[in-house]
Design a binder for these strands. Structure first.
Length: 428
RNA sequence: GUGGAUGUAGCUUAGCUGGUUAAAGCGCCAGAUUGUGGCUCUGGAGACCGAGGGUUCGAAUCCCUUCACCCACCCCA
């Protein structure tokens, strides 16, 4: 068989069994978020291109070369969102959500798009579960947000996920730090790898997490951001750590932790997975972003979890996902009249909220029974001319093969419930 | 954008140095059991061996090209 075309590069279909698992994980995250006072926001898949240019910083890799940007028929430049924060901020402002008082807490579970070369944990279409908090600069908000993230990951049973923490300061102290870094690395220009050399001007902080051994060695001796933080940033960072410790949340300080988007200030963090070799998600503060997008100066923070990566991590550690519920009653039928009756009984069961099914593929009785077994049906009801004439049929309990006679007329549902209450029931 | 690996039934794979009708397991369908699932047995359908070209009497197998997918780097979720 040859398909005329396959799913586009970097995209995947979540087939039923997979989709079930996703839904289970998503539900756990939603529960955790709502427990923490977050409410869902749904924003468009595409936004005006400038939102991302302004928001993420137009010299970032994502904005420079990874965006799905195109002109619509009206000549507007629009972009498939490469991340969730910018849209959430825009929606928060546009709908005046801040008028209900601070903090505003939002969560979203959305697909994002980046034009990348796909590999493990990196797709062109990927899903992010994100949370954002607006309107507080207090370090307690940072700690609480991080605590929620850790708690959600733990609730899912993830064991090899850590917490890496850093503060990259505010624009003022970061400026000084950049200068110090540039001075330090410029003095060692000859040894740096070519990529890092090019980073020297634009974003010297990125050199800190270069994978090249030589650069790592050099970076190890580089000035640390924490030594350059202004007093406010220092005490803010100290408080965040203090609060995390108070909640018994272990973390490792990583002065080299630099996030790829320009909007971050002060606290930044990631949830690295040891076995996968990359972070499941991360986030931090972005105290300047709301204003940058055109809103009032509003401190804010948030994080995103890569759903695809989260699923990889769960599968890697062989998480047991809940079993599929299966069909409760299968009504097998022989002959046209019985088939009609079966369809009608199934419909009745559905109206009562019971999971039921019957053959729709023209199978013989034996095949129908086999199919019922495959569906994991708990009960099977066989209808033929005899049963129609008698107005009764035998309800078979598939687990042990025992049968009980029940009426298939007026008393059908009542009789069925009487038997299934005794034996057990999947739905309702 | 750079580098590496892999493409054989729906799925997982065998097919060594080129030699008839390309094999197996799982899955699917059917029969054994003309009105009763799971277990067993038997049978069946299903593959132009990713595509194109070349070498050869002969190519799934060797060569070239291309496409797809995977992995790593870069970057990030």
């Amino acid at each position: 068989m040859e398909l005329i075309t396959k799913a586009p590069k970097g995209t995947v279909d979540l087939v039923p069994q997979t989709a079930r698992r996703w839904r289970w994980v998503e539900q756990a995250l939603i529960n955790e978020a709502e427990l923490n006072g977050f409410a869902e926001v749904r924003t468009p898949v595409f936004e005006h291109t400038e939102l991302f240019q302004r928001g993420m910083g137009d010299v970032t890799d994502v904005v420079e070369k990874q965006m799905y940007t195109f002109e619509d028929k009206g000549g507007r430049s629009v972009t498939l969102r490469p991340e969730g924060t910018a849209g959430a901020v825009r929606a928060m402002l546009e709908n005046g959500l801040y008028n209900n008082g601070y903090p505003v807490r939002l969560y979203y579970n959305i697909p994002c798009y980046r034009y990348e070369k796909p590999q493990k944990g990196r797709m062109r279409e990927f899903r992010t579960f994100g949370v954002e908090v607006f309107g507080t600069a207090e370090p307690i908000a940072d700690a609480q947000l991080i605590a929620m993230g850790m708690s959600a990951l733990q609730r899912l049973g993830l064991t090899d996920v850590g917490l890496q923490l850093n503060s990259i300061g505010c624009p003022t102290c970061r400026k000084e730090y950049h200068q110090a870094l540039q001075a330090y690395f410029s003095a060692r220009k000859e040894s740096l790898c070519p990529t890092c050399l090019s980073r020297l001007d634009r974003n010297p902080m990125r050199i800190l997490d270069c994978k090249s051994p030589v650069c790592q060695e050099i970076a190890a001796g580089a000035p640390k951001i924490t030594d350059y933080l202004c007093e406010d940033c220092q005490s803010h960072f100290a408080k965040v750590q203090e609060y995390l410790t108070a909640m018994d949340i272990p973390f490792t300080l990583d002065p080299g932790l630099v996030r790829g988007l320009d909007y971050y200030t002060r606290t930044v963090f990631e949830f690295p997975s040891q076995s996968l070799g990359f972070a499941l998600g991360g986030g931090g503060r972005y105290d300047e972003l709301v204003e940058e997008i055109g809103g009032p100066p509003t401190p804010a923070l948030g994080f995103g979890l890569g759903m695809d990566r989260l699923m990889l991590a769960l599968e890697a550690q062989k998480t047991e996902f809940p079993e599929e519920a299966g069909c409760e009653v299968f009504v097998a039928a022989m002959g046209e009249a019985a088939k009609v009756k079966a369809m009608s009984l199934v419909n009745t069961l559905h109206k009562c909220g019971l999971g039921a099914d019957c053959d729709v593929c023209g199978r013989g009785l034996k095949a129908q029974m086999k199919y019922a077994g495959k569906l994991g049906a708990q009960y099977c009801l066989v209808l033929g001319d005899d049963e129609l004439a008698a107005g009764k049929a035998r309800l078979k309990y598939m687990a042990d093969g025992t049968e009980k006679e029940i009426g298939i007329g007026e008393s059908f549902v009542e009789d069925y419930l009487a038997v299934s209450t005794e034996k057990g029931r999947l739905s309702l």
